[in-house]
């Protein structure tokens, strides 16, 4: 079913909208949640909550890109759950990805510790805009979708080692970019 038709079901308040959403995007939603939480039960809960969130928000909202909208809800809910879980439970692919990114971004002293998240998002968007397509996709797959190195190797038809090296270089480029923009010194 096309996204437009699914949105029409939302607008018609048909519960079939959720079924169609799950049918079309459920697999990726579960994967995103599970990558972050590393717990099938928690992931299931977050995905269901995301569906409920979408149900409550549409209408009035009408997302231009439905899967991105849904994935973002899943990701945010999963991250919120991730932070509420005990440290002992954290051993997901997301942990590793987040630590990599944190090492890069927090590796230098932050000039403005309280800099708004929006500002960092803006810088990340700018940085992504400077990358070539493959680099940008690799970065987003790793640090947004929290794909493991093995999954990335498969997706990019490369070896684990090449992916690791490429990610390392991307983080280094990000660090340079943030330094240049005055976010890091």
């Amino acid at each position: 079913m096309e996204d437009g038709q699914i949105l029409e079901l939302f607008y018609a308040r048909s519960e079939q909208a959720i079924a169609e959403l799950d049918k079309k995007y459920g697999r990726v939603c579960h994967k995103i949640a599970n990558q972050i939480l590393n717990n099938a039960q928690d992931a299931e809960e977050c995905v269901n909550d995301a569906y409920l969130g979408a149900w409550n928000a549409i209408p009035p909202q009408r997302p231009d890109y439905l899967p991105g909208y849904l994935y973002r809800i899943v990701r945010n809910l999963s991250i919120a759950k991730y932070h509420s879980n005990t440290a002992a439970k954290r051993n997901s692919s997301y942990d590793v990805a987040l630590e990599e990114l944190a090492d890069c971004i927090l590796g230098g002293a932050s000039v403005e510790e309280e800099i708004a998240e929006k500002e960092l998002t803006k810088l990340l968007n700018q940085f992504l805009g400077t990358l070539n397509k493959e680099g940008r996709i690799l970065f987003v797959r790793r640090y947004w979708y929290a794909d493991s190195i093995g999954e990335l190797a498969k997706r990019f038809r490369s070896s684990n080692n090449v992916i690791s090296v490429r990610l390392f270089r991307l983080r280094r480029e990000l660090k340079k970019f943030l330094q240049k923009e005055g976010y890091l010194i």
Binding site: L120, L128, E134, Y145, S158
Partner: peptide
């Protein structure tokens, strides 16, 4: 970590879409 995580969450939809739809057709990307 929350700060970075949230900042990353809010990147442009276009980048999320691009990454979602991508599957390499080129084995010599890197």
């Amino acid at each position: 970590l929350k700060h970075i995580s949230k900042a990353m969450s809010d990147i442009n939809d276009s980048y999320i879409q691009e990454a979602e739809e991508f599957y390499s057709g080129n084995s010599k990307l890197f």
